[in-house]
Design a protein around this nucleic acid. Sequence first.
DNA 1: ATTTTTTATGCAAGCGCTTACATTTCCAAG
DNA 2: CTTGGAAATGTAAGCGCTTGCATAAAAAAT
Lengths: 341, 341
Amino acid sequence: MKKDRTVPTLEDVAKAAGVSTATVSRCLNTPDRVVKETRKRVTDAVEALGYTPNFGARMMAAKRTHTIGAIIPTMENAIFARGLQAFQEELHRRGYTLIVASSAYQPKLEKEQIRTLVARGADGILLIGHERDPDIYSYLETQNVPVLVAWTYSTEKPQISVGFDNRLSMRALAEEVIRQGHRQIGVISGESAGNDRVSQRLAGIQDALNMNGLSTDKLRVIETSYGIDEGAAAFDKLMDADQQPTAIICGNDVLAVGAIHRAQARGFRVPEDISITGFDDIELAKLVRPALTTVHVPHHQMGLKAAVTLADMVENKGSQSSYEIETSLAVRDSLGPPTQT
Amino acid sequence: MKKDRTVPTLEDVAKAAGVSTATVSRCLNTPDRVVKETRKRVTDAVEALGYTPNFGARMMAAKRTHTIGAIIPTMENAIFARGLQAFQEELHRRGYTLIVASSAYQPKLEKEQIRTLVARGADGILLIGHERDPDIYSYLETQNVPVLVAWTYSTEKPQISVGFDNRLSMRALAEEVIRQGHRQIGVISGESAGNDRVSQRLAGIQDALNMNGLSTDKLRVIETSYGIDEGAAAFDKLMDADQQPTAIICGNDVLAVGAIHRAQARGFRVPEDISITGFDDIELAKLVRPALTTVHVPHHQMGLKAAVTLADMVENKGSQSSYEIETSLAVRDSLGPPTQT
DNA sequence: ATTTTTTATGCAAGCGCTTACATTTCCAAG
DNA sequence: CTTGGAAATGTAAGCGCTTGCATAAAAAAT
């Protein structure tokens, strides 16, 4: 049963402090425009009544919310956690509140979430990856809400991005795999539909093949949703095919870990019998046995830079531009040369 | 440069559709109270203008936001991810939006976040653990915002909770450790200050000791913040002390994994030389070698139940009550009998 | 055809806050 | 003392939406 105890308003505070609502408002927002003694009376009243300004009213009157929205595909795995944490910390430092929503990799849900965030008055929005219904971008433009795209980097898209070049990063990894002598390569990828990061990574693998004069025909690609179990299942599919690969490149660490796990369960030695690589370098990568060879992404740095950039965009500080985060190869134990047979 | 293209309002839509604002509003909120033909005109206008209702205005006028806020200690590790995902999914199903904020284990920040969420009109709030400044609870009561406490269960506290009994769960684990023959037991715990879940778990270990007629004196406890590296560091402290333990009970899986990793790096065999246990049963637990013996917490179920309960609380559906989630022991490989010396 | 009932729509009053502008107060200088 | 101007405070007009009530239109009953 909701008690009908009424929530105190600005006016209540004003009355309690014996001043006008304008003064109270000023106390809260521009304290130096109010004489010290009055201020004290007001803050006391605020304290006594347990007053919290009503955000909706404030938003209406002031047109700024100091809120940034972020929509990530999932909270379930660690991929976004670290970067987002840094993002949020930096925003907080700058006086912004972060609202996070997850779209579960569903474009439709994402669209809905974006509208929700805008309606909630997000001053700016962080999105993962470029690829989505163009309507969304035009909508955001209509609404006058700046967008920053992260976890990917491209100067060709109209949106500003802070992230890394998925294609190049993956190409570097793939080249290393090839350099080690692998010719039969399997790929466990995320779903490429509507996900430019995934398709970029795929393209990167093909680039590496092409550059080494290898045909991309023998490349067996399994697309699956992200997850440990999915990685394991994809591993099975790959290994139960006619031509067993000697190396498997995975779209991310989570898939790779799943694959390694399954490989070991089935008695394969990694990397002697089968090499497996990941992407992201989440904490887990160092911890599995064998430690995962993967692409290291400086998530913290990315989150930080994204926060700075987006805040500046919101605050209209000159024109921001895209920023590329450099990845590096984390060469560990899960990749080795193929055993001759 | 922000273009001054103005964002369309309800009134613009009304004008475009040739109806009153009231009708537009009804179209959006109670479509069946508007005749089909009018509705079409309105929805078309909404579409054409790219209209999104202003949340602040709505909140002011309607006093309901269909928003639930959740404050978790951290997004950085997987402990809360799974449960929260389930929580959010169920809420979404019921037409609520979830706003997540993380407090980084800082009570002060948490307090601030709570105020922010309330100001933003959260209809209800999810908090982790009971222990916090009582002011917060009375504030929430003043504001008429229902709170649900999760990740812990207690019928003794005034707040409704959905979670598990940390003390009992940990006791069960500790008993198993003792049963295996361990007498020198080390503990790597989270920081117990202001964190009832941590202190409950600690108490659970002592209970187990007491019940088996063992003194709690020899129990060496290291408190540290959660993290892989922290777990590793704590392991060092424990093992470099005079009396080396034969088993280490960790406050959560993350700490345990860190400890295992360090143990192995230092040449200890787990569990032959040293047993290590965790708590939570995050995905990682199955994947490390040796697989972690830990307490399995059905996070998904907990998130789901929390969502249902909190939504009902918000909607005033009778009086909700606390709900206990049953944990179970996940006995795997990181715990074994001590080797005789 | 008229009256009653039902259904669809419009009118307008707020919701709690910010802020431009008006007013009062204070203090220094004349 | 005045007086002028700066500083502090007050007044009141919205911000965009929902909703109770009034009104109009349509349907049903007489």
